[in-house]
Design a protein around this nucleic acid. Structure first.
Lengths: 211, 211
DNA sequence: GTCTATACGTGGATAGAC
DNA sequence: GTCTATCCACGTATAGAC
């Protein structure tokens, strides 16, 4: 398979990519069939293979993962440097805002949906979360166990996206993005700088930073 | 999982159910094929259809959803009635403990995995979360917007299970269950009784940076 | 560049012999 | 109760005609 294969006309290519993103977003990698994507795009199924050698390549190009990574990274960087006590709010605003405003929400949804059933996608999402969040955290945090804290932050972000876009759990699914960011911000902050409870008794919690 | 089961073994039904649960847990509903399940169980694929009329019935019986619901409900009830300021800790302990201690973890994992790509399973999980958590919350909570609070709690629980069992995000995936429950407890408590940041007070909202 | 036809595998489900 | 054989629909991918 030569990599320098001729590309098709841009309009048709874009149409296929848009249809593919839609299917991957709503059905995940497995259930989204090339036939359905072709039907949505109004083209022949074999044309998809002609443009993108296989389904995995189509998935990668439709999601455009580097674009997500770059946008998220830029948003996090733009949130301001080094303010440790407001890092939770910054991350919350960056992540939620990134999902709501931009055109990246479908890609992220597709990523989460597909990660549940596809091990490769799971690995991609795992590394993506780890690298992006952990890097931002370690850049301006002095608390111990940054990896554990990053994973906890990732878990809450994952849960919100899962509840909002996959499960469509109301009223969270229809909640205002700004409100959502503000609500989860103190919890992210607790994961980032709070006491992780390793030294306390289970029934006696230390005072959270927001109380 | 026992392989190579031969004829003359009475508990064929249980063997099939065990193999099915294993496949559904590790691969989700779609990717788990009856042929693979039959191979794991050491039986013929048609035998599965003979016992359970179709794949959906097999899925339902393998997960034994009523058992999960009952166990979770009982654990939540046993956590004690009415203590509003410790409800977060109770829910955290109940949910995390339920997943770690009992044999229900595979079923819950299968449920989450399958919900990502299957709309029917998604609905089941959604209604399950809503009913179980919301009911417990409204039973001993006076704070406004219980539905929104319940959804937020569900999102954090979902995220932890997703990160722990599906994505296997370290070091959260290998973290001690008790520690995990203690760490997320104050955050659940914040969702339950904390200030929701202007959910019903729109005039207090500050302008998000992305709007 | 686009489509028709088709190969090839897989997956769920059925009929019937023993 | 278990297996063999089979059906049919679907999904990815290829070959080749226009």
């Amino acid at each position: 398979m030569p990599r320098g294969r001729r590309r098709g006309s841009p309009p048709t290519r874009q149409t296929i990519l848009a249809a593919a993103l839609g299917r991957f977003t709503n059905e995940g990698y497995d259930r989204a069939s090339l036939r359905d994507i072709a039907t949505d795009a109004g083209v022949d199924p074999s044309l998809i293979i002609h443009y993108f050698s296989n389904k995995e390549t189509l998935f990668a190009e439709a999601l455009h993962l580097p674009r997500i990574s770059e946008a998220l990274h830029r948003t996090l960087e733009a949130a301001g440097p080094g303010s440790e006590e407001e890092l939770g709010a910054h991350i919350a605003q960056a992540l939620v805002g990134l999902l709501e405003v931009s055109t990246l929400a479908p890609a992220v949804t597709a990523l989460i949906r597909s990660a549940a059933s596809n091990e490769d996608v799971s690995r991609i999402l795992r590394e993506f979360l780890t690298r992006t969040i952990l890097r931002r955290i370690t850049a301006s945090l002095t608390a111990p166990d940054p990896a554990f804290r990053a994973a906890l932050v990732a878990s809450q972000v994952l849960g919100v996206m899962m509840a909002r876009f996959v499960l469509r759990l109301e009223p969270l699914a229809s909640a205002d993005p700004g409100l959502l960011a503000r609500v989860i911000a103190p919890n992210l902050q607790h994961y980032l700088t709070g006491d992780l409870g390793g030294y306390n008794h289970p029934e006696r919690q230390s005072a959270p930073p927001w109380s």
